[in-house]
Design a binder for these strands. Structure first.
Lengths: 233, 233
DNA sequence: ACAGTGAAAGTCATCAGATGACTTTCCGGG
DNA sequence: CCCGGAAAGTCATCTGATGACTTTCACTGT
């Protein structure tokens, strides 16, 4: 086993067996090097690997800390790489997203409160009022995120947020057909929000599924290149 | 921006913009250091991060290559970390798994062939015949993997395989209640396989969902500690 | 002409040492 | 009691050197 692997598995083992718990600070580099029998360089490479995977978090000058080890911590690491996938692979992701969006919509319909419904319709009105594609995309994200939040499963909400972030890179609303797509999307949102307000899980699931499927068809039809954005980072 | 971040984003950008395509070999460390303006150590840390995320693959003595960038390549990276999650977080993952297993079961029911059905029932018979918990767990995995394969979405199949691998660490079949659980599980499998053989997606989805929910209840009830296994690696 | 062999080049893997940057702690002065 | 600054602790980065592994290619013997 290589030195980096030795350090990687050693660290993972310490966390997996509970010797290092969530939020805890791990020993300084020097001690770990001695204990694991590798040089500082190799240890640091292993630390970076676990950091990329959302398991630990180095803080300059302070130390390196184990994350909270919630599912969303490790699932969030996918957002670093999902945007590298070619469109062909993305369509498989869409099938997953369609199923899960339908599920959270149904859950949200069963659990929604008047406050939730107000928030959703408020977001819809803002969405319909704006002409800026970037702002519309942002509001669209918040609309679906709110539904996922009400769905009650933070892990699932995070997973869907990662999927949506990848989709947004394609900026379908900036196409020539954008305004028409926007209008149809807004209609979908009203149907979905209404179903949630009515506590109708079946209707909500159907509306969510249809909405995602529609987006998927647009992507498949237009296949626009991914936009160069400087956001995040 | 730190040196490692600069190298990480630089490399990711090269891949994202297509300058480095799937399967291609990236320039040697020396060239990349000069181009990105960082030292070899920092570059290597960035390379390890992308490698942990399934985006690139260093080969000692040969070079570092971009992966195929299929969704399963990056989703597979979750298997390195999902087993670190505490049981509390795992239950949220189960809700996702339940929904997705139901979906692939329905898809499999719609698309199954006689060969598929033969394979499934053959696996069931092997499962019922063995008394070794480890082998039963292995066959259980292959049974569900076959259904996911027939479902037709490799990305989804990979995601479910990762979830299942995490669950298997708990080794519910080795509990005192193991034999009884095994029997119930076998019954579930027969119901599911029969629904798939009958091309009945609704029945298949229901059976899959019930099966996962059952497993979830067992875990919730017994909460056994995670087993120390030396497999993989 | 061909197959096998071995050297050489190319590349990643690892280690060691030194320096810088940042955070936290703690002590002394006001 | 508050506050400022020094000091210790820790991660971040660079440089240089050596080792290990793979690939390529020229050479040799048949």
């Amino acid at each position: 086993m290589s030195a980096v692997e030795k350090a990687f598995h050693g660290l993972r083992h310490m966390i997996g067996t509970g010797r290092l718990g969530p939020g805890e600070r791990i020993p300084p580099e020097g001690e770990l090097c001695e204990e694991l029998g590798v040089s500082r360089g190799s240890l640091r490479e292993a630390v970076r690997m676990l950091a990329a995977l959302g398991v630990i978090e180095p803080r300059h000058g302070s130390g390196t800390y184990v994350s909270q080890l919630r599912p969303q911590d490790v699932i969030g690491s996918l957002s670093l790489t999902l945007e590298l996938l070619p469109l062909s692979g993305l369509l498989e992701v869409y099938e997953i997203r369609r199923v899960l969006e339908a599920h959270v919509a149904a859950q949200a319909a069963a659990r929604s409160t008047p406050e939730t419904v107000d928030t959703l319709f408020s977001l819809i009105e803002d969405m319909e009022a704006t002409t800026d594609p970037a702002k519309a995309s942002e509001l669209d994200h918040r609309f679906h995120a709110e539904i996922a939040r009400v769905g009650g499963n933070p892990t699932l909400a995070t997973l869907l947020a990662v999927f949506r972030a990848r989709s947004r890179k394609y900026q379908v609303f900036t196409l020539p057909e954008g305004p028409e797509l926007r209008r149809k999307s807004d209609d979908d949102h009203r149907v979905l929000a209404t179903a949630i307000a009515d506590h109708d899980p079946v209707a909500a699931a159907g509306a969510a599924q249809a909405h995602v499927a529609q987006t998927e068809r647009w992507l498949r039809a237009f296949m626009p290149p991914v936009e160069e954005t400087g956001d995040a980072d």
